[in-house]
Design a protein around this nucleic acid. Sequence first.
DNA 1: TTGATTGTTCGATAGTTTTTGAACTGTTGT
DNA 2: ACAACAGTTCAAAAACTATCGAACAATCAA
Lengths: 116, 116
Amino acid sequence: MRPLSHPAREDISLTAVLYALSDTYRLEIVRQLASRGELNCSALDIPAAKSTLSHHFKVLRESGLIYSRSEGREHYNSLRRDDLDARFPGLLAAVIQSSEPAFTPALLTEKPSAQG
Amino acid sequence: MRPLSHPAREDISLTAVLYALSDTYRLEIVRQLASRGELNCSALDIPAAKSTLSHHFKVLRESGLIYSRSEGREHYNSLRRDDLDARFPGLLAAVIQSSEPAFTPALLTEKPSAQG
DNA sequence: TTGATTGTTCGATAGTTTTTGAACTGTTGT
DNA sequence: ACAACAGTTCAAAAACTATCGAACAATCAA
């Protein structure tokens, strides 16, 4: 596969970041990366086709919100916290703190039970 | 004209607010409202047709970012700071602080001079 | 009443975004 | 070599968005 492109810190655009965060799926991806750390596509609890997820990851990557590294056949994605905090202090924290789980919140916050 | 609709504080959606802020024109409008207080359309230094501006004000209004009141033939627009701070603490401040003037910055920060 | 002003709404066009299945690239394991 | 797997890219449809001129409504001033 082609190398994935990431903007340099100084090229991260505020409007592009806000736009990327304005989609329910993408905001949920960012939420999960924030709470669960580095994740690959398959690890996400998001109901969508893989081509759809790939599209949203691309938007997040090209906006500068996430960094994707290849390891074997997987892509590990992580938030670019340092770059975002440097460019837009307080923004990421405010967004994450103000957001709510979009899908199957029980699976994300509760431990598995006998009924699970 | 029909009464302008504003969402109640509890109905303000994070993704709608982020989307509204992700447009250069709209972010500039918010910037100017933040620094200059209540303004009507004509008071803005934004190069666009009035129907375009009206559209952007509508998006901002319906997302809950601004409040528009009619007085005579003018509409005065202001930021819904209290509502936004209550719903999304720190978000508006972070966005405004991270943003930069979009158009003719000289006109917004400098006093008129003999050459102006 | 006439005309200027403030802003909304309509209609049209052009461009963008979302979503998906299918095809594809590359990796891992057998 | 072969199949399973992770993820991207392509192509296409549907939906949405931005932009503008024109028409419109409402106010104000002469």
